[in-house]
Amino acid sequence: MIGERDITKVQELVYEMKVEQVMTKDIISVSPHSLMIELRDLLREKRISGVPVVDEGRLVGLVSIEDFIKCLAEGEIDIPIKDRMSINIKTLYNNEPLVQAVEEFDRTGYGRFPVIDRESGELVGIITKGDIVRGLLKKIEIEYHAEEIHRYRASHFFEDIVADKTTLIFQYKVISKDFNRAGQTSSGLKKTLRRMGMPSKVIRRVAIATYEAEMNIVVFTDGGQITARITPQEIRIDIVDSGPGIPDIEKAMQPGFSTAPDWIRELGFGAGMGLPNIKKCSDQMNLDSTVGKGTHLEITFNLNEKMKLGSGNDS
């Protein structure tokens, strides 16, 4: 049994959201009295592999591309659909929670379920795994198209919900010396964490640490990448750049130590507080650097434990 705290927003959503919120409502259906031959164009044009069979609003069967091929092979394409459709169909109700659909997909291995209105008994939609993933993504408002956020693989996302150990991965590119855009990564990450319903104190610590790290990439390196991995237990941020590397890490960690030129200081940065700040905000920090090769900074924030006293900059 996992505690309430452990459940990420995404996991909460599969309990909160209903089938009807993500299903496809624009249904293509056929009449049981139509002929099998009529399926040919429909299946080809709509690029679908199965069609619900509806009689006066009621779902009476499901006919698939396999059924059609069989008829074709047997030369019986002029018979009515009702003679060839499957009639024992597993359906879902419109107001069932998504988690129910997830379990049915998992249990049966089917690709789609017709959705029936619990009140009227009429067919109101079709739901696929893709619909669920899209619906969840839309709900947490993750824009796939944004260049900075590479879409994490939807199929994995789905498996993770089933496996109950959701890992969300966000990746961002940070461009060197681009002072106007600097901060966009941290801003994007902060907004995402907020939408996921993380505690605001944790969000603030993550945002500040990531922002400092982002500014380090902008100021000191030739560019780099920031990856955030979010699990129910922790948020881990990896900040990787390709050089020039830090010659003396111990020194770099000292508050006030800086190699920044004056022009950086005039932009409000480079006072030697960045790395100490990051350390102060995070629960764990690893810094690995090779001169000429680059730096890998890994910072972790615990989500499970109660916020420790002294961690974070509210102390």
Binding site: F179, N180, A182, G183, S186, S187, K190, R204, A207, I208, Y211, E212, M215, R265, L267, G268, F269, A271, G272, M273, G274, P276, N277, K280, N313, D314
Partner: peptide
């Protein structure tokens, strides 16, 4: 200096600054 702001400022404070660039806003946001 934005790192000092990030390290010490409390949520709900006002930031007075002579740093007229977008990072002042980013810092406040974070």
């Amino acid at each position: 200096l934005m790192s000092d702001v990030l390290a010490f400022i409390k949520p709900g404070a006002i930031l007075l600054t002579g740093l007229n660039n977008p990072q002042a806003i980013r810092t406040a946001e974070m």
